[in-house]
Computed example of a mutant assay.
Amino acid sequence: MRNLAVLVVIGLIVYCVIDVIRSTDDERLGVHPIFWVALILVVPLIGALVWLAVRWSRRTAGGPDTSSRNRRATGPDDDPDFLSRLDDDRRRADPGASDDAPPSAT
């Protein structure tokens, strides 16, 4: 049981160090990443928990980076502008075709 607790703390430390390195300046509250890594390594459990609390509060605050980070990737067929351009291109290619008719094979 003690070995499991040690492994969990080591995993938490590794996760937090990698997360600090990948974080933005805003998520780190403007503090240089080396100071966060030092805090996590010198005071392992408390430093990691402090980092997780700060990171969680900054990412859920709705800053400019959270929208791009949490935005789900969509295909071009989900974009109404793309679909309207396709319709316009199809109409230009065959101006006499009806909108209800399927495209003809050429």
Rank of each mutant, 00 (worst) to 15 (best):
D25W: 08
R59C: 07
V42W: 08
A97F: 14
S23M: 09
V31L: 12
T24K: 15
V8R: 14
R22W: 03
F35A: 12
R92F: 08
L41I: 07
I21N: 06
V54L: 14
L52V: 03
L83W: 02
A53V: 06
S57H: 14
A5H: 01
Y15E: 11
G63C: 07
R90K: 00
D79E: 13
D99S: 04
F35M: 11
I18T: 12
G47F: 03
L4G: 11
N3L: 15
S57Q: 13
W36M: 10
V14D: 01
D77E: 08
T66C: 09
R2V: 01
S67V: 12
R92L: 14
R69C: 05
P102V: 11
W56A: 09
L7M: 12
L83M: 11
D26A: 15
A73T: 06
T74R: 03
W51A: 02
L49A: 10
R69A: 11
A48M: 05
R2N: 10
G11Y: 01
V9M: 02
L39V: 06
G47S: 07
P44Y: 01
L29V: 11
D88L: 11
A97I: 15
F82K: 01
F35I: 02
D89I: 03
M1E: 04
R58W: 02
D77A: 08
A93N: 03
S104C: 06
S98N: 07
R22G: 06
L52T: 00
Y15S: 11
A101V: 13
I40F: 00
A101L: 11
V54Y: 09
P64T: 14
S57F: 14
F82P: 00
V9F: 00
S23V: 09
T24W: 15
P44C: 07
V8L: 13
D89S: 08
D26I: 05
D19Y: 02
S68A: 11
P44E: 04
D77G: 07
A93F: 07
L45H: 03
W56S: 12
D81Q: 11
V9Q: 02
R69W: 08
V31N: 05
R59Y: 04
F82I: 10
H32G: 14
Y15D: 14
L12H: 06
R59I: 03
G47P: 04
A61H: 11
D77N: 08
S104V: 02
S23D: 13
A5D: 08
V8S: 12
P103Y: 06
A97G: 15
D100E: 07
L86E: 10
N3G: 15
D88E: 12
S68C: 05
L45I: 07
I10R: 04
I34Y: 13
S98T: 07
A73N: 06
L49H: 05
A105Y: 08
F82G: 00
I10P: 00
P64D: 13
D89V: 03
R59L: 10
R71C: 15
D94H: 10
I21Q: 08
S23C: 12
D79N: 15
C16G: 13
L41Y: 03
R92S: 11
V54M: 14
D19W: 04
V31R: 13
